[in-house]
Design a protein around this nucleic acid. Structure first.
Length: 504
RNA sequence: GGCCCGUUCGUCUACCGGUUAGGACACCAGAUUUUCAUUCUGGUAAUAGGGGUUCGAUUCCCCUACGGGCUACCA
């Protein structure tokens, strides 16, 4: 029987969750779900210097919004806890010591000042097989000296002893066979002077202890994979090592390089899943959610940034993605993020959603737009009429506020120049006829309106725009008679009267 | 600088040795429309360059160019 699949995502809580991060989670999740496995969330919070309060909860909230809820996490629990690296601190030292004992690692007593001096003196200085004999470590010091230094609690780190020239290879799920030479990496610090592990030690130990079978991460980790593979070999055996997948990066739309928060600010689009306020600077970065994206659309567009199912289908629900996702079809090359296409996905999802599906979210945006909704049935009718014209949920207030309150401003400039007695008479007559109407629906209204126009020898086209301005305030919105139908007889007539007066 | 990874329309991508190189976004034109959108139809547009291998290369190999990543007691 094969091992139960356990895929983990291990973010460090240092800020907002960006596109690349969410996509990594998504692929983790899809892979786990499509194989009936578990999706594990572990928080890597051992770098106290960069730890940001609130970021962990924020990450959880983002995943919740996207519908990518972990099976195990600091809040969901699980039998391989704790799920925060900082709470697993006691685990790491013993493994580091074990490596020293086995000759795969060593104590290093060099101070940061020592290292800095070396780096300024020697360009491209690396702490490795060539330079380590000239440094202060347990390989150069005598055993007694090391012992007394340790007993005196001299600050020290534990570094991996990278072999001079050993070929290290592993099979990456997206790249296939990857081969490195051990000389490519320097002697990475495994355990820091404060007793905390570095990422390198922590991933390996945690993945082992938490029985992780698959580990997905960004391509930027590829070069250090050699260190991790070596650590697996020394500590737990290569046969127990998880399968690695190094995902392609998400790139800036214009220039070159990894997409960063700065690019969003600069180019005017979000890079975080949800609003993120940096507690240190109080700076707010807008998220996809708050800008009016549907979580389904967000997940959909992210999935397609580096994967497709080989057909021409572009719109996928999360369930469909679980069903169709396969690692073999994940691309190797990075993808530039295109906000226009992102908006297209959202538009498609809004169009494809029912009024009922959208109701809650729309209520929320209307509220932030200053409009409180009380009648759900009425709201649903408005949504049905308006949703095709909205690319973002945040377009709804502008596209529909006039259904809930009379326009605050009227674009009279488009009517005034052509306003004359004939039109004045026409609208006076329209008010009279509308008041007499028994049926109040779009078809009858249009019929009546055109008949009045014919009787007054006026082209319907000449009075439709004024009517629109009267009801809507501007040159936008759905069909005028649909609007009139929804807002009702009384309101329609009152708006016509009101604007007529403004035109005097 | 060193090492690693990558390269099909402007962008996301399909075709895993034989296609008029397909789709989507964006863009342009036309149609529909009572506004603005939507929608529909059509169009422009790509295999980075050079060598091989092969009857035949977008597809396999090599070199070059370009892009990206890593090179911390950060992840």
């Amino acid at each position: 029987m094969s091992k139960k699949i356990r895929v983990r995502f291990a973010p460090s809580p240092t800020g907002g969750l960006h596109l690349g991060g969410v996509r990594t989670v998504l692929y983790n999740y899809l892979f786990a779900r499509s194989h009936g496995g578990d999706f594990v969330l572990r928080i890597e919070d051992t770098d106290q210097g960069r730890f940001v309060p609130g970021a962990e909860q924020y990450i959880l909230d983002c995943l919740q919004w996207c519908g990518l809820v972990p099976d195990e996490s600091p809040v969901h629990g699980g039998k391989y806890g704790p799920y925060r690296q900082s709470e697993r601190k006691q685990n790491y030292r013993q493994y580091a010591e074990q490596l020293v004992k086995d000759g795969y690692a060593y104590y290093a007593f060099d101070t940061t000042a020592d290292l800095e001096a070396k780096r300024t003196a020697i360009p491209n200085f690396q702490y490795n097989h060539a330079t380590r004999p000239g440094m202060k470590n347990s390989l150069t010091y005598g055993a007694d000296e090391v012992k007394s230094l340790l007993e005196a609690q001299t600050p020290h780190v534990i570094r991996i002893k990278m072999p001079e020239d050993e070929s290290i290879s592993f099979t990456d799920m997206v790249r296939g066979e990857v081969v490195f030479s051990s000389s490519q990496s320097d002697d990475k610090v495994l355990l820091k002077a404060d007793g905390m592990p570095t990422y390198h030690l922590a991933v390996v130990v945690d993945d082992y202890l938490m029985k992780i079978t698959h580990a997905f991460r960004g391509e930027e980790w590829l070069p250090s994979a050699s260190v991790h593979v070596l650590l697996w070999k020394y500590l737990f055996g290569l046969e127990n090592m998880p399968q690695w997948a190094h995902l392609p990066l998400i790139l800036k739309p214009d220039g070159n390089g990894k997409l960063s928060k700065r690019d969003g600010d600069r180019l005017g689009f979000p890079v975080f899943a949800m609003n993120w306020t940096d507690p240190k600077t109080n700076e707010l970065t807008k998220g996809f959610r708050e800008l009016g994206f549907l979580p389904e659309a967000f997940v959909n567009l992210l999935a397609m940034l580096g994967w497709n199912d080989g057909t021409e289908q572009e719109i996928f629900s999360l369930n469909e993605l679980v069903e169709k996702f396969s690692m073999e079809r994940v691309h190797k090359g990075g993808a530039k993020f295109d906000y226009e296409k992102a908006k297209w996905y959202n538009h498609e999802w809004i169009k494809g959603s029912s009024a009922e599906d959208l109701r809650l979210e729309i209520k929320e945006v209307m509220k932030t737009g200053g409009i409180t909704i009380t009648d759900d049935v009425y709201l649903d009718k408005v949504i049905t009429l308006v949703k095709d014209r909205c690319t973002l949920l945040s377009d709804f207030p502008l596209q529909s506020s006039f259904f809930f309150e009379s326009p605050k401003q009227y674009d009279l400039d488009v009517v005034k120049p052509k306003w004359n007695d004939q039109k004045k008479l026409f609208f006076a007559e329209t008010i009279r006829q509308f008041e007499l109407m028994q049926q109040w629906n779009a078809q009858d209204l249009e019929k009546e309106f055109k008949e009045i126009a014919a009787a007054n020898q006026i082209k319907p086209g000449d009075v439709l725009l004024p009517l629109r301005i009267m009801l809507v305030g501007g040159k936008f919105g759905p069909g005028v008679f649909d609007i009139a139908t929804l807002i009702g007889k009384k309101e329609t007539i009152s708006r016509i009267k009101h604007v007529e007066q403004l035109l005097q």
